[in-house]
Nucleic acid binder design. Structure first.
Lengths: 334, 334
DNA sequence: CTGAAAGCGCTTACAG
DNA sequence: CTGAAAGCGCTTACAG
């Protein structure tokens, strides 16, 4: 049988109130009683019950984190950052895989509410109104990571997607490329879709390159779907010398498809990715890409959330710095 | 203010006991009172407090999962399987990153105990005696995944590493290779190190190939360290025509290093990996590898754990099937 | 410096 | 079919 605070109180000949005080480092006991209480705790191998504590404190020291796909390299990197920061601050993480499914998300939100989490981090997906309403009803702090929203009360931490894409595109242009295609996301996606496409377009325009809409392919971000986009690209636009892929997986899909057709990267076609997952350096050839500081973003999100929890203060959103990591998939044209 | 069971009792003109009964689908009320209670619950948007429930039921419906590295592709795949199964059974997952650090692991074990998790899944690492003792003291079910232990009371779910390595090696031999090297783990690692090396050796012996210890390299499983092992291999043993890498990352490191030296895979050197991470199919060329059913392993581990929690029965360990996935990194020698 | 008591939000015998 | 009461393991005024 696990011992409770009563057991140690009895054995130490004090009241549970006193035990509670030494446990929580509150004032109100002599050095002597502290010593005996501590000794008894040791003898009984007593550990406080966080559930009982949570019930009364209205704090569970746990935060819920929602990802569209926990097993993606992207999510796991963010998760790692969150976990690391949170653990140091004595918070635990419960992970939720929404599978980008509304019902599943709502179910998880309900579970998190019932379990009285102290706060929630919502990652990579658009915060639908339905979710927002549920979150508001829960009345806990929320922070967004790798996404944003129109709800001003919800802070986010993310990269400037428009700008990052603009720079990726200019990088290609400065390397002498003029025939540039893009493998992006769905244009209706307001997070990782539209802004990146818009940044791409603007960079082209600002550099006097005619925009050709047929050179923008929807690759759905993941490898499989991007593979068909890449096939398409290569067969319909052989004049293209460089492509900007809005995710590393899509960039790698392009490389794979090119290899299959005997087209070599970067000699015959250049490509720059987006994310800088571990994948990128393991790629063959190693992938030049736009780095998002995913781990750091997770840490910052956890930091913000925890300060909202503890101080009830409003917190400001944060744009994280991106940067270009030059590896071997972009060739300088003469 | 969030409403409690008292609020709904009051508004519905019944006792909290009755509300609790309808909430839990217990017998003991008329259809009529059920209807009004349900209506009031709806009106008040009442949601039960799982913490209060947990305190009295001694069940939190949450399970702790410990990984050496949550952000690895390996762990996240297992995690996904666990999460999926657990969610369907109304359990939440709290993730813990041990970072292969004893102190951190012990700290997490303590947190999980205080938070009264119903069970624990321990992944990929050796279950040190210290951990085992802590777990025993917690008195909750434990299951191991992608690892095993000498403690008979702790069931595991894993692949047969010895056999899988044996088969990987024979696969290479049957393709006509005789000069075969291995990039493995640390021989002192009883989980993923020694068994795989032993399987490799035995396959060589059984096929009349002289064992050369200098052809077994320690690649530490991850890309970076494997890169130096691969450099070593290529420079000290140019006669090698095929290598068995005990993880996909190490196989890909070999491919990358080979490419850097202008050695083409599989034309000049063949390689077979281990794990079948998503990486493997994205590799260039696509990696032939031994597949571990990681997602499934996560599911099975969660399944076993939950049945231990609910039935208190002993559960048996399970060896999961591995299989060879043929892609394009192994060449048949004439 | 210390303890008795109330209470967090539930569930579960027990009694009717 | 229904309710009053005890209790889960803690914390926190309050009183001394």
């Amino acid at each position: 049988m696990k011992s409770t605070i009563k057991d140690v109180a009895r054995k130490a000949n004090v009241s549970v109130a006193t035990v509670s005080r030494v446990l929580n480092n509150l004032p109100g006991y002599s050095e002597d009683t502290k010593r005996t209480v501590l000794r008894v705790i040791e003898e009984l191998k007593y550990q406080p019950n966080a559930i009982a504590r949570g019930l009364i404190n209205k704090r569970t020291q746990t935060i819920g984190v929602l990802f569209p796909s926990v097993s993606s390299a992207f999510s796991s990197e963010v998760l790692h950052g969150i976990e690391h920061f949170a653990h140091d601050e004595n918070y635990s993480i419960v992970v939720c895989n929404t599978a980008e499914d509304g019902r599943r998300t709502m179910k998880y939100l309900q579970v998190l509410r019932e379990k009285q989490v102290d706060g929630i981090i919502f990652s990579s997906e658009v915060l639908k109104e339905e979710y927002y309403e549920a979150l508001k009803a829960m009345d806990v702090p929320v922070v967004l990571v790798a996404t944003h929203s129109e709800y001003k009360s919800v802070p986010y931490v993310k990269v400037d997607d428009w700008k990052a894409s603009y720079e990726a595109t200019e990088y290609l242009i400065h390397k002498g490329h003029r025939q540039i295609a893009m493998i992006g996301g769905y244009e209706g996606d307001p997070i990782a879709g539209k802004p990146r496409i818009d940044g791409f377009k603007q960079a082209l325009l600002d550099n006097g390159i005619t925009l050709r809409d047929e050179l923008i392919f929807d690759g759905g971000f993941r490898f499989d779907q991007a593979t068909v986009a890449a096939e398409n690209l290569l067969s319909t636009a052989p004049e293209v010398t460089a492509v900007f892929a809005a995710s590393d997986e899509m960039a790698i899909a392009l490389i794979s498809v090119a290899a299959k057709h005997g087209i070599s990267v970067p000699e015959q076609i250049s490509v720059i990715g987006y994310d800088n997952l571990k994948l990128a350096e393991m790629s063959n050839p190693p992938l030049t890409t736009i780095a998002q500081p995913l781990y750091k973003m997770g840490e910052r999100a956890a930091d913000k959330l925890i300060s909202m929890i503890t101080s009830k203060e409003r917190v400001v959103s944060e744009i994280m710095p991106h940067k270009i990591i030059e590896r071997n998939t972009v060739k300088k044209l003469p």
